[in-house]
Amino acid sequence: MASIRKTYRRTPKVELRSLTEESCEFVLSNTDVSMANALRRVFISWVPTIAIDLVEITTNTTVLNDEFIAHRLGLLPLVSSRVKEMKSPFESGEDDDWTDVEFHLNVKCTGDDTMDVTSNDIQCDPRHPDVRPVTDPEGKGILIVKLRKNQELNLTAIARKGIGKDHAKWSPVATTFFQFMPEIHINQALMETLTLEQKQEWIDSSPTKVFRLNPITRQVEVENAEAYMYDGECIAKAEELGKPGLVDIHQRQDMFIFKVESTGALKPDAIVVMGLDVLLNKTHDLIESLETEAQSHAAQAGGLDS
């Protein structure tokens, strides 16, 4: 059995290229598309965050209707570093489970100028002060609605834990994507049949800076393979110059450039680790239910025999 299992590649490599407060980029290699895609899907729709889910409006004399405001509130990213301590209404069993965070918003425009109601005006739950709308470096807050003189908004909002599969407001990522690592081979023998001008012309045909001309050897080199956008321009140009096969470009099926851009609810590295935890839990649960299923089948079969 051991020999068979060697055929799987079960030790993917991760190389973290950059990590900031809102995004991270890493190269995932020694694995395959199905794993990369599972990861991408898990980041988008399975990693839990906190978002406003229930809004009770007492007064709303703004130009936006109640539902519209409730929807806008739901989309505000909330700092979800403590999401692991929370339970969603679907998983909660005990009475003392922490499921809700309450917010209040009570604003009235008294001045003559238009007033902006932003996420900074939201009053946080005193029991959970660390669950709050995310802040931007300038501290301007996220605009919810604008008020004219004498317009008023008074509401209570309840935030809950949830996942992106239920509603996109719970998705911790703004975008996450992966790109296949390009593999570029230049046919140098064929390249040498081109004049220097033609070489430069061919290099310039690529809309992104992928190739360069070595000033000493006068050879065309790959400067940055990752800049290649799979646009096929340089291949078309080679054909136009009457030299098909000048360059050979492949998408590597075992190496991916991953980018995770957070909404601010969770740190990008936390999204990756929590995503992997979700996948681990899924497989763990499946193994467990396979065991119980096998046992109940065996019991049934035993019952039939006797």
Partner: peptide, 25 residues
């Protein structure tokens, strides 16, 4: 069951290497 175990192992390995990389960066 084998496939599940393999997937689990892959995820566990990725989680570990990711943690190491985050630490390094």
């Amino acid at each position: 069951r084998q496939a599940c175990r393999d997937l689990k192992q892959i995820c566990a390995h990725m989680k570990q290497t990711m943690a190491e990389e985050v630490e390094r960066v």
